[in-house]
Design a protein around this nucleic acid. Structure first.
Length: 225
DNA sequence: ACATTAAATTCGA
DNA sequence: TCGAATTTAATGT
């Protein structure tokens, strides 16, 4: 069972909830561990709960018309996702794969729906979050065809720093270059070169086991060099 | 793929 | 518990 302090730590949105809503949210959420490379759910599967990342790293991906992999978003600690599918009580249209050992928080659909219907603070949060992700997906559709490796990495990093989706992220992302490669669909070597390129224009700083983000708007707007 | 460097862990006092 | 020695992980080319 998750205690109140832990709940507030893993779910930034829970801090704004009314007393009863917070209690329900806490009681209806449980933790589950996944090893690296695990599939949390696949396309077409009915996976009931709403999910948050407590710790670790995962990616959301789907297949395009030709059956090729498209990474829709990188997901790290503090992020919650899948609300669209849970709201509509549908089957998943994308899949989630862990990139390293990861702990997820799973909230029952019953609890989620209760919060949606009874908590003003929660519905307000949902609107913000849905809108923010919609904006990301539109950006993805608009430029996916022409971004090179550096551009895709810039975008992956910028998205994982989104202040609405990840309110607790500082100015740093704890990702190895290998993990960044997995997120952007490039080799570690290519990721290394791309990061150097972004560092040379002052948008990031490379650190051991992580990346400091120096210019978020710049990363978002990054086009091919 | 290999060499280098940073960090984590173990070990001996 | 401290610091040196060893092992493991990440990075650079």
């Amino acid at each position: 069972m998750i205690d109140a302090g832990q709940m507030r730590r893993i779910a930034a949105w829970s801090r704004a909830l009314e007393e009863e809503a917070f209690e329900r949210a806490r009681a209806g959420t449980r933790l589950r561990d996944y090893p690296a490379g695990a599939s949390v759910f696949v396309v077409g599967e009915y996976f009931e709960p709403w999910v948050g990342i407590v710790d670790g790293l995962a990616k959301m991906r789907s297949l395009n018309e030709e059956g090729k992999d498209v990474t829709l978003a990188g997901l790290h600690a503090g992020g919650w996702f899948g609300e669209g599918t849970v709201l509509k009580d549908e089957v998943r249209r994308y899949e989630i794969v862990t990139l390293r050992a990861t702990t997820l928080a799973l909230m029952d659909r019953r609890t989620f729906m209760w919060l949606f219907e009874n908590s003003g603070a929660f519905s307000q949060f949902l609107v913000m979050q849905l809108n923010e992700r919609l904006g990301q997906f539109i950006a993805l559709l608009q430029n996916d065809r022409m971004l090179d490796a550096t551009g895709r990495i810039a975008r992956a990093l910028a998205w994982m720093m989104n202040p609405v989706l990840y309110p607790d992220a500082g100015g740093k992302l704890d990702l190895t270059q290998e993990e960044i490669g997995l997120l952007a669909g490039v080799s570690r070597q290519t990721a290394n070169q791309a990061l150097k390129c972004l560092e040379s224009v002052g948008m990031i700083r490379m650190e051991y086991g992580g990346i400091a983000i120096l210019d978020l708007p710049g990363l978002l707007a990054y086009e091919n060099s």
